[in-house]
Design a protein around this nucleic acid. Sequence first.
DNA 1: CAGTGGATGCTCT
DNA 2: GAGCATCCACTGT
Length: 186
Amino acid sequence: MNQLSRDFFARSVHEVAPELIGVTVLVDGVGGPIVEVEAYDPEDPASHGFRGQTARNAAMFGPAGHAYVYRSYGIHWCLNLVCAGPGRAEAALVRALKPEHGLELMRARRGVDAERALCSGPGKLCEALAVTRAHDGLPLDEPPFTLLAREVKPEIATGRRIGISHGAEREWRYGLAGSPFLSRRL
DNA sequence: CAGTGGATGCTCT
DNA sequence: GAGCATCCACTGT
């Protein structure tokens, strides 16, 4: 097993994000390969880092290779992988993955049976992997996280990001072409 | 299918 | 007090 180092993330998110498709993410052994991410950088009005550092987004300004977890719409958690260097807020939002490890645990946590519905969206994925504020700022190369490098380069599709009002024209959403586990088709 | 709206909590204005 | 990097259930074709 080839675990990703923090150095892997210490580059521009625009470089890292497409390379994340196919990378396996496990939290306490539960997870699977990423099929969809979105890139956010500090020049992007849709990014939490756009207006500078605050208590909530501090992890985004921290060193690369750590998690940034925030609450969305008061209900869901969303998991980001922090890129670039300290002081520069770049991160990739993990939007969907293929459920592969710990399926029964995911079903129990999500309360649904269909495999396609377990991790096909940032909020769903965090519920299935039990990601919460407790994971905010944690390094990605130590438990409970495990990130495994992909073995083959997948076919990547790109498109507009979802659910944002400013900067929506940027095509910074990356997905595994044709995957049934995407949150929405690309 | 597509479109609408409610649930819900926290941050920043 | 507004506005969200969402999800689900509901409506009407």
